[in-house]
Amino acid sequence: MLRSRVAAAGGCVAALGLAAALAAGAPASATDRTDPNDRYTAEEIHHFLEGFYGNHGPRPWEREHLVSDRLKERIAQTPGYDLLLCAQNEPRDIEVGEVTTAQSARVGWATITTHWSQSPRTAAFTAYVDLDGSRPLQLLDVDCAPGD
């Protein structure tokens, strides 16, 4: 009985300490936000892709700061076509699917589904993200070919 009260009190102290650190705006270290091998997790990538794509596609800031240089070169070669959305127009809504990570290849990916107009028409493509936790997350590539 005493042991459980001590454990409960210790848990409360730890929770209060965490709450105080969060309230003080203590920054999370790289190891707090990545796996033990300094790679981003599937959950972090999913969150990144949801923020990147939003409801209607990436805004100019995301396009400028969160896209790899290689992908920016590909985008420049597709005038009149939005390579990041694999489309020519802005979708009505966007969903990010389950993220898969290939730790050895240091890449993660998810299917991005776009919804169009008022109809049930959708399209899907794959977005690839760098897993290297020592750098900020960025979109590495997109594959506009429909998945199998």
Rank of each mutant, 00 (worst) to 15 (best):
Glu98Ile: 07
Leu84Lys: 02
Thr78Tyr: 04
Thr101Gly: 11
Tyr81Cys: 03
Arg106Ala: 11
Ala105Asp: 12
Gly80Phe: 12
Ile94Arg: 08
Ala76Tyr: 07
Glu95Cys: 13
Ala102Phe: 14
Glu98Tyr: 07
Val107Thr: 02
Arg106Cys: 00
Ile94Gly: 08
Leu84Glu: 12
Leu83His: 05
Arg106His: 07
Gln77Tyr: 15
Gln88Glu: 10
Leu84Thr: 11
Ile75Asn: 11
Tyr81Ala: 03
Cys86Thr: 01
Cys86Ile: 06
Ile94Met: 00
Thr100Val: 13
Ser104Ile: 02
Trp109Leu: 08
Leu83Ser: 07
Trp109Asp: 08
Arg92Asp: 15
Thr78Pro: 08
Ala105Pro: 08
Gln103Thr: 12
Ala76Glu: 04
Glu90Leu: 11
Val99Tyr: 12
Arg92Cys: 14
Asp93Phe: 06
Gly97Ala: 00
Trp109Thr: 05
Thr101Phe: 00
Gly97Phe: 00
Pro79Lys: 09
Gly108Cys: 02
Trp109Gln: 10
Ala110Glu: 13
Tyr81Ser: 04
Leu85Phe: 08
Asp82His: 10
Val107Arg: 06
Gly108Arg: 15
Ile94Pro: 05
Gln103Asn: 07
Asp93Ser: 12
Glu90Pro: 12
Thr100Lys: 09
Thr78Cys: 04
Tyr81Lys: 02
Ala76Trp: 08
Glu90Ala: 13
Gln77Ile: 12
Leu83Gln: 10
Asn89His: 14
Tyr81Phe: 11
Leu84Ala: 09
Gly80Met: 03
Ala87Trp: 08
Thr101Val: 04
Pro79Gln: 01
Pro79Arg: 01
Ile94His: 03
Ala105Gln: 09
Tyr81Asp: 07
Asp93Gly: 10
Asn89Gly: 11
Ala87Glu: 03
Tyr81Gly: 15
Pro79Met: 00
Leu83Gly: 09
Ala105Thr: 05
Glu98Asp: 08
Ala76Asn: 08
Thr100Asn: 14
Cys86Asp: 08
Gln77Asn: 09
Glu90Val: 10
Arg92Met: 10
